[in-house]
Simulated assay, not measured.
Amino acid sequence: MNTPRYGYGTNGLTDLRLDDALVLLADLGYDGVGLTLDHMHLDPLAPDLPTRTRALARRLDRLGLGVTVETGARYVLDPRRKHGPSLLDADPDARAARVRLLIRAVEVAADLGAHAVHCFSGITPEATTPDTAWKRLAEALAPVLAAARAHGIPLAVEPEPGHLLATLSDFHHLRSLLGDPEHLGLTLDIGHCQCLEPEPPAACVRAAAPWLRHVQIEDMRRGVHEHLPFGEGEIDFPPVLRALADTGYQGLTVVELPRHSHAGPELAERSLRFLRAAQAAGGAT
């Protein structure tokens, strides 16, 4: 049985400079960080990315922090369209821009020694049939998976409420379309399980275990896609953490509170205290 390793997402610490955020997490006792590539932290589109990435790798090593690279920045590619362009856009050039970003994220992850690269499908555009959307997604991910294989970095696709790929069942559909490639893995957001999966979150963890490469965690209520601080939703966390430990998951379990950056330092401290208490209550030690 593995002891869970906790991280905190930089998308919940956007009011801090990146180095200040990393020092905070190390001082609090976190094991790692979910690093969202974005303009306020490690900007994937600014000049001299390899040099900046190598410097960050050294800093993470000195602080003893592991890392997963996350690609959910809201406006990193298009300052007017949230999460745009996506892998499902009708315009092939727009899809290609997202593909290039994901390949760049794989390269950054390799330079950082990251556990995985996270991504998601995007929302199906209007007047697009499901068959067309799935075809676009599979075709767009093919070169990203090739880069992941070349660099030895798992690509961890996240089921996201409201997206084409929204559930664990959808993940398996994508896996089938792509021929079950070795480097295609899963990001499981525990709150999303509570929001819309038919099974409870702990059961989702056990079902997802063979493909699980990255975990995001926060509280949430059934049917409402709102990331909540721990204790403000409906999730029973001790069984979730026990399931992660029992199934042998070895990556980071990253707190995902992207709309709470204004209280990031306080919530980072409270979240780790909550998770450790829930871990002890569930026997996941």
Rank of each mutant, 00 (worst) to 15 (best):
227 H>T: 06
265 P>K: 01
164 L>W: 04
104 R>S: 09
15 D>Q: 05
227 H>I: 04
238 P>F: 06
90 A>P: 02
119 C>T: 15
145 L>A: 06
89 D>L: 06
22 L>H: 01
168 L>D: 01
221 R>Y: 01
248 G>E: 11
47 P>E: 14
142 A>G: 03
107 E>A: 04
164 L>M: 10
56 L>S: 14
196 L>N: 15
69 V>A: 14
128 T>P: 09
71 T>E: 06
36 T>A: 07
112 L>P: 06
284 A>P: 06
39 H>C: 06
181 P>Y: 10
136 R>S: 08
128 T>H: 09
216 Q>S: 10
92 P>W: 09
125 P>S: 05
14 T>D: 00
198 P>G: 10
116 A>P: 00
115 H>I: 02
73 A>Q: 00
87 L>M: 07
17 R>S: 13
236 D>N: 15
92 P>Q: 10
81 R>Q: 05
22 L>I: 06
251 G>I: 03
218 E>T: 12
31 D>Y: 04
184 L>P: 01
184 L>Y: 11
226 E>T: 01
181 P>A: 12
114 A>N: 10
211 W>H: 12
151 H>S: 15
55 A>G: 15
29 G>R: 02
106 V>D: 12
89 D>Q: 10
244 L>A: 06
164 L>V: 12
91 D>G: 00
146 A>Q: 14
272 L>V: 07
112 L>W: 11
245 A>S: 14
158 E>G: 04
200 P>F: 13
218 E>Q: 15
89 D>A: 11
113 G>D: 01
202 A>Q: 05
250 Q>W: 15
148 A>S: 15
225 H>P: 07
206 R>Q: 01
189 D>K: 08
219 D>M: 07
69 V>N: 14
271 S>D: 11
118 H>R: 03
112 L>M: 07
218 E>I: 09
110 A>D: 10
225 H>D: 09
198 P>N: 12
74 R>I: 10
140 A>S: 15
227 H>W: 02
98 R>T: 11
183 H>E: 11
116 A>F: 07
178 L>W: 03
155 L>R: 03
88 L>Y: 03
118 H>G: 05
91 D>Y: 08
171 F>A: 09
135 K>Q: 12
203 A>N: 03
220 M>N: 06
13 L>D: 00
137 L>Q: 03
214 H>S: 12
120 F>Y: 09
202 A>I: 03
154 P>T: 12
271 S>L: 06
26 A>S: 15
103 I>K: 01
132 T>H: 07
80 R>S: 04
263 A>H: 01
243 A>F: 01
74 R>G: 03
121 S>V: 14
48 D>R: 12
236 D>T: 10
182 E>D: 04
34 G>Y: 08
66 G>W: 05
31 D>T: 13
262 H>L: 02
128 T>S: 07
161 P>A: 04
240 V>C: 15
191 G>Y: 04
224 V>R: 13
138 A>L: 09
284 A>M: 13
220 M>A: 15
232 E>K: 13
175 R>A: 01
155 L>I: 06
113 G>L: 08
167 T>I: 08
125 P>R: 08
238 P>T: 13
283 G>W: 15
237 F>S: 14
278 A>D: 00
107 E>D: 13
274 F>Y: 15
114 A>Y: 12
222 R>Q: 05
249 Y>E: 08
265 P>W: 00
107 E>W: 04
89 D>H: 10
16 L>I: 01
247 T>D: 10
